[in-house]
Computed example of a mutant assay.
Amino acid sequence: MNNTEDLDHASSLLLVRDAMNRTTADLPALPDLSGPARAQGLRRRARVRAAIGGGVLTVVAVAVAGAVALPDSGWGATGIGVAAQPSDSRPQPQPPVHLEPSPGESSMADLPADERARQEQFQNRAVPVLQGLLPEGVGTLQRTDLSVRLYQGTKDGKTFTVVFSVRPTGSDTDPRTCLEVKGRTCKKGALPDGTEVIASTSPVNDGDVTESRIFFRYNKSNVSLSVSPHDASHTSAPVTNDQLLTLAKAPAFLDLVKSADAEPVEEAQKILPAGE
């Protein structure tokens, strides 16, 4: 390569570098977010990074096209010499929402280190599964550090409490029934193996909002998933009975249930005799 070609090559690389710097220079700094707002900030950051990536790729493509058009340049579209690097698209666990326990209430922080790590691992498995199966209205799901069964969905400033429980019990009796009373609507469904699932939507608080839940018995455990309303905005749980019945039959959800039934992450449910 002669001196003229060296200069052309260097000039093209400087053009690309300058364009990349200008693409990112005017982007505002992102605030440090915590708690339920962290997920929204992470989504914004991801969108910004995607926009930056798209802009840089466009600039590089234009520069390369110009380089190809240079007479006797001696290098083509691969001449920049930057090899594409594989990206890790696996979702990374997000920090939990911190919730202070009520007086006399314990939290996951009180658990032995090994047990706490095991429960957090289960939560991190559950979050992407539930996120993919719950409707968009529930928002971005996060685990909490208060209880292994407790999660929060956040969207448009509204927080919906999600409780996912697989609790061992010594009773073979299913205590739930499908009764439509006091404004409660109820629907039955079935798992692929024929196990009955009950979904219900019930008025709560002053009756102006509703909570939705499913319940079924699996092997040695009682399984339930509920979505609570956002009280401050008087917004009902954004999920229907049909959506919950569909969720219950999903293989990924049932895998979580099977795992928690085989290796419980909750204490066994105590069944007290009537009158006690």
Score class of each variant (00 low, 15 high):
residue 31 P to D: 12
residue 31 P to H: 12
residue 33 L to R: 09
residue 33 L to N: 10
residue 34 S to N: 11
residue 34 S to M: 11
residue 35 G to L: 15
residue 35 G to K: 14
residue 35 G to T: 09
residue 37 A to Q: 12
residue 38 R to F: 12
residue 39 A to C: 03
residue 41 G to N: 05
residue 41 G to P: 00
residue 42 L to I: 15
residue 42 L to S: 04
residue 43 R to I: 12
residue 44 R to P: 02
residue 47 R to P: 05
residue 47 R to I: 15
residue 48 V to F: 00
residue 49 R to M: 02
residue 50 A to S: 00
residue 54 G to S: 07
residue 55 G to Y: 01
residue 55 G to Q: 03
residue 58 T to I: 03
residue 64 V to H: 09
residue 64 V to Q: 10
residue 65 A to I: 06
residue 65 A to T: 13
residue 66 G to H: 06
residue 66 G to K: 04
residue 67 A to G: 01
residue 70 L to C: 00
residue 71 P to M: 04
residue 71 P to Q: 07
residue 72 D to A: 03
residue 75 W to L: 00
residue 77 A to E: 14
residue 78 T to P: 07
residue 79 G to V: 01
residue 79 G to L: 04
residue 79 G to Y: 03
residue 81 G to L: 01
residue 82 V to N: 02
residue 82 V to W: 01
residue 84 A to S: 09
residue 85 Q to P: 09
residue 86 P to I: 13
residue 86 P to F: 06
residue 87 S to M: 04
residue 88 D to H: 08
residue 89 S to M: 07
residue 90 R to T: 11
residue 91 P to V: 09
residue 92 Q to H: 02
residue 93 P to F: 02
residue 94 Q to Y: 05
residue 97 V to I: 13
residue 97 V to W: 13
residue 98 H to F: 06
residue 99 L to T: 05
residue 99 L to K: 12
residue 99 L to M: 08
residue 99 L to I: 11
residue 100 E to M: 06
residue 100 E to P: 00
residue 101 P to H: 06
residue 102 S to V: 00
residue 103 P to Q: 03
residue 105 E to F: 03
residue 106 S to E: 05
residue 106 S to F: 01
residue 108 M to D: 09
residue 109 A to H: 03
residue 110 D to M: 03
residue 110 D to K: 04
residue 110 D to E: 06
residue 110 D to Y: 00
residue 118 R to M: 03
residue 118 R to W: 11
residue 119 Q to H: 04
residue 120 E to H: 05
residue 120 E to W: 07
residue 121 Q to Y: 06
residue 124 N to G: 02
residue 125 R to M: 09
residue 125 R to P: 15
residue 126 A to V: 09
residue 128 P to M: 04
residue 128 P to D: 04
residue 131 Q to R: 03
residue 132 G to F: 13
residue 134 L to D: 10
residue 136 E to D: 09
residue 140 T to W: 15
residue 141 L to R: 08
residue 145 D to A: 10
residue 146 L to K: 06
residue 147 S to H: 11
residue 148 V to I: 08
residue 149 R to L: 08
residue 149 R to T: 15
residue 149 R to F: 11
residue 149 R to G: 10
residue 151 Y to V: 13
residue 154 T to D: 12
residue 155 K to F: 14
residue 155 K to V: 02
residue 157 G to P: 15
residue 157 G to C: 12
residue 158 K to S: 12
residue 159 T to I: 12
residue 160 F to A: 01
residue 160 F to Q: 01
residue 160 F to Y: 14
residue 161 T to S: 13
residue 161 T to Q: 14
residue 162 V to Q: 04
residue 163 V to N: 14
residue 164 F to R: 08
residue 165 S to K: 13
residue 166 V to S: 12
